[in-house]
Design a protein around this nucleic acid. Structure first.
Length: 893
DNA sequence: TGGTTCACG
DNA sequence: ACGTACGTGAACCAG
């Protein structure tokens, strides 16, 4: 078979690659801030076109320098003038492109004084002479002049993976020219992108006509006298020199001096081991997954031996139990479940062990009740490495065991190190530290296909890999936390908090199901009534819950004015409907329907569906490693968004009751915690003074913004405006946002902001400083050194950059407030124990804590909680805590 | 699965 | 010129 030589025009393809994915430029950024769009597209090209070709020889040619220092630059000084500067986002990818090429087994080559074309031209002729079948791939049409029967030129058509194949026959068919005549054509037309002229007024069409008659410009000029008089003839004669110069410029060298012999450019194939490291560096997750899959199916070698550590697992039974007593003082331990909900999901098995002694695993959960295992689990002197300590604490609680000695939780550590892309899966998080193991999806399958494999050995091996991964990760993860100065945050805040949260979740909150059910029946009736009214007003039945159908009815059939549009059609959101309410009675009914339907489906039916029948309680899960700011979130169900703002919705809270007779619900909340944090971290003296004097902060802000003297009464409207400005400041103010919120003009909003910054100058300074610092460091921090990375702060996309800037201002505030209440929770929990109170903390809602307690404890609890919360941390402003209690959550107001 | 809406801080 | 307030979760529709 004929041997194959592959020649690739690196610069032109990289250029195409960059612009093929230009829209994604700002989305495709690796963890170290490198744009990767061209790299991704170029990699696709190598994957789809080059790798399957398996050539014998292969080379990627690059331009060295700008083209100015080639013979073309000397022949014509204006050559390639007027080209816009290469964007820095593209330039930074160059070195990586070359590395990628090398790892795919191709040779890179460049030489000062030569352009990539000339390198390709010369090698193509050398290859042809040596009997190779030559394939050229380029993004530049000019190269088709190189085509012969043995040399095929492929030019990108769309993106970098769709190519158009030019053979001499195809060129003839398409242009009626031989490959050599492509140069002649250029001589006549010139090239605007390379900035050299041909003959004035001669374009593609005229050039083709002339060449059909004269074949080339030598012949044309030899016979020019016989041409009949015309403007074109005049131009040809005047531009003769220019035409011959253009021909030289357009001609690709086929005899350049190259210092790399043909036999040294053999194709070496992909170096998978190094490519994996390279992809990791660039965060090419899909590519990594692909290689992993190939390795698993045995299509390519390697991977497991080098990466996934070989682990020996011993199946634990009641006859070999004694082995675990040899494990010593440091183990990894893990209980595996069938899903995320550790309160109810089935336990698949467990593992315990360390690399020194071994890993012991079993699917028989009853083994954990034996003295051998129980005494390890409950011994706080046996230090444990775990993944998701809160989940493990609860799983052991379900087995009647107390997991003690938890020390390293890789999930918490990974979250503190970088909140972005946290999918909460061990195998993916481990990759950040170059530790590899199979994912749960690979072992159990995804979604509906989830199943525990029949092969018990496979399950136990997976568990052993988890345990081993946790042992391997301890040192590097803790070292990284130290490097971030986050050990205090980890040891003193998140880890103890996980224990507190485990208690809260396990305790759960009692629901009066009858009350909820009765409210549901009442709501259902009212929803029906409104539904009927809506159908009559609409003149037809339709799905009121469908924004699409509703939009068509309101804006097309009824002809109401369109106020706002969404990506997919008309907006029917509250603010829009409220503006339309006066024009048609149906709009008001729809608003009422929406409110009631929301209450029924989310808060009545939704809550009832998650009540545990055994104890009539709801056990939410507080996600501790999800939010970008350090707040908690709450799922299954979300107990952090139970209605409050409308009386109708607030009544839902009557169903949240104490779990013991003669107990009550008690709540304590921080007043204005975010503004206090703002006053503290900005160091603004004026705002601090307002808090130190115990002023109404929004009224005080109003006096400042409206220029009123101290103690002047502030009317409600001014206070409302000032409050909105304060909110805006916390969110990372913009005149647009404030204008929108207050329904005023942007100019007026800007005026407010300017005055605000003048009155609170240190807030202004801080806003500038934090943006600057985010720009330099790539992240912002809270008072407890919680970190949020902001890669988009460098973006040249206005939207993305502005968003990152607002985030830079908001996250330290929201996040520090989160730090404070977390610290308070830990201290409150200890204080409850120390004071032998029966009271239990049940919920956290960002700035408030909800408890249940015996009625006769309430006054002591109130005093204790308030004092612990307001002294949780020491700020430059006082913290204020309000509290309430009653027979239900509703009454704790 | 993504988009829209709406509940909370 | 650009065109957004910060952080969440759940229900529902439509493709």
């Amino acid at each position: 078979m004929t041997k194959k030589l592959l020649l690739i025009d690196g610069n032109s393809l990289a250029f195409r690659a960059f612009y093929a994915m230009y829209q994604q430029l700002d989305r495709m950024i690796s963890h170290n801030g490198l744009h990767t769009n061209a790299l991704v597209a170029f990699n696709n090209f190598l994957d789809q076109i080059v790798d399957p070709m398996q050539p014998d020889l292969a080379l990627v040619a690059w331009d060295a320098g700008s083209g100015k220092d080639t013979y073309r630059g000397q022949l014509f000084p204006e050559y390639k003038d007027g080209r816009s500067k290469t964007p820095s986002e593209f330039k930074e990818q160059f070195p990586y492109l070359r590395e990628m090429v090398a790892l795919h087994g191709l040779r890179n080559y460049e030489k000062i004084g030569l352009e990539a074309d000339d390198i390709i031209g010369t090698y193509s002729r050398m290859g042809e002479a040596a009997g190779y079948s030559v394939t050229i791939i380029t993004g530049d049409q000019d190269l088709i002049q190189l085509a012969t029967d043995n040399i095929t030129v492929n030019v990108t058509k769309k993106g970098v993976t769709e190519l158009e194949r030019y053979t001499p026959a195809y060129i003839m068919e398409k242009y009626g020219l031989t490959p050599q005549q492509i140069i002649e054509k250029k001589a006549l037309t010139g090239d605007t992108s390379d900035n050299y002229p041909g003959v004035t007024k001669v374009g593609e069409k005229t050039a083709l006509k002339l060449l059909a008659e004269y074949e080339n410009i030598d012949n044309l000029y030899a016979n020019i006298e016989d041409m009949k008089k015309s403007k074109m003839k005049e131009n040809l004669i005047n531009d003769r020199e220019s035409a011959f110069r253009a021909r030289k410029l357009a001609t690709i060298s086929t005899d350049a001096t190259l210092d790399l012999p043909l036999q040294e450019i053999e194709y070496r194939g992909i170096d998978y081991d190094k490519l994996v490291l390279f992809y990791q560096d660039l965060d090419f997750k899909q590519q990594l997954a692909k290689i992993k899959a190939l390795r698993k199916s045995g299509q390519i070698a390697g991977g497991d031996e080098q990466n996934e550590t070989q682990v020996h697992v011993v199946t634990l039974t009641d006859t070999n139990l004694r082995a675990v007593t040899m494990l010593g003082k440091k183990v990894a331990v893990h209980i595996e479940t069938t899903g995320d909900n550790y309160h109810i999901d089935e336990m698949i098995g467990f593992v315990i062990g360390n690399p020194e002694v071994g890993y012991y695993a079993s699917r028989d959960m009853t083994l954990l009740q034996t003295t051998e295992l129980k005494s390890i689990i409950e011994d706080e002197n046996v230090v444990k490495n775990v993944f998701n300590v809160k989940a493990q604490l609860i799983l052991f609680k379900r087995l009647g065991l107390q997991l003690k000695g938890t020390y390293f939780d890789f999930l918490l550590a990974a979250y503190l190190l970088d909140t972005t892309d946290n999918d909460n899966e061990l195998s993916t998080l481990a990759q950040r530290f170059d530790v590899y193991m199979s994912s749960d999806d690979e072992i159990y399958g995804k979604g509906a296909k989830f199943a525990v494999p029949d092969d018990e050995g496979r399950v136990l091996m997976h568990l052993a890999h988890k345990a081993d991964t946790l042992m391997q990760l301890e040192l590097p993860a803790l070292a990284a936390l130290k490097a971030h100065e986050q050990m205090h945050l980890y040891t003193e805040i998140e880890l103890p908090l996980a224990h507190v949260l485990a208690d809260m979740e396990y305790q759960g909150i009692r629901i009066n199901q009858t009350r909820l059910y009765d409210m549901g029946v009442d709501l259902q009736g009212r929803i029906h009534t409104i539904e009927d009214a809506i159908y009559i007003e609409a003149g037809e039945k339709f799905n009121i819950n469908s924004p699409k159908q509703l939009g068509i009815l309101l804006f097309e059939k009824m002809g109401l004015p369109v106020i706002k549009k969404t990506k997919t059609g008309y907006s029917t959101a509250v603010d829009v409907l409220e503006k339309l309410a006066s024009q048609a009675p149906i709009v008001d009914h729809i608003l009422q329907y929406r409110q009631l339907a929301k209450l029924k489906s989310t808060y009545i039916d939704g809550m009832l569906s998650v009540v545990y029948p055994q104890d009539s309680k709801i056990h939410t899960r507080f996600l501790q490693t999800l939010t970008q700011t350090g707040r908690l979130s709450s799922v299954d169900p979300n107990l952090q968004n139970i209605p409050m703002r409308t009386e109708e919705g607030r009544l839902i809270r009557k169903a949240f009751v104490p779990s013991e007779p003669n107990w009550q619900i008690f709540g304590a909340d921080y007043s204005q915690i975010e503004l206090r944090v703002l006053a503290h971290i900005t160091g603004d003296k004026n705002m601090q003074k307002a808090f130190l004097n115990g002023e109404d902060i929004h009224a005080e802000t109003a006096r400042a913004v409206f220029g009123l003297a101290d103690d002047t009464p502030v009317d409600a409207n001014m206070r409302r405006t000032a409050k909105a400005v304060n909110f805006g400041i916390v969110y990372g103010i913009s005149d647009f946002g404030l204008a929108n919120n207050l329904g005023i003009s942007r100019a007026e909003a800007k005026q407010f902001i300017d005055t605000y910054f003048k009155e609170f100058p240190q807030i202004h300074e801080w806003m500038d400083k934090i943006k600057q610092s985010a720009h330099e460091l790539g992240f912002v921090e809270t008072i407890a050194k919680r970190r949020r990375y902001l890669p988009n702060i460098q973006s040249k996309n206005f939207n993305l950059r502005s968003f990152a800037e607002r985030t830079a201002m908001n996250s330290p505030i929201q996040g520090s407030a989160a730090d404070i209440i977390k610290i308070a929770m830990i201290k409150v929990n200890s204080a409850l124990k120390e004071n032998n109170l029966q009271a239990r903390m049940l919920l956290q809602v960002h700035d408030e804590l909800i408890f249940e307690a015996p009625s006769n404890e309430i006054s002591e609890l109130s005093e204790l909680v308030t004092s612990v919360m307001d002294s949780a941390v020491s700020l430059d402003v006082p913290m204020k805590v309000d509290n309430h209690y009653g027979d239900t959550w509703y009454d704790a107001k």
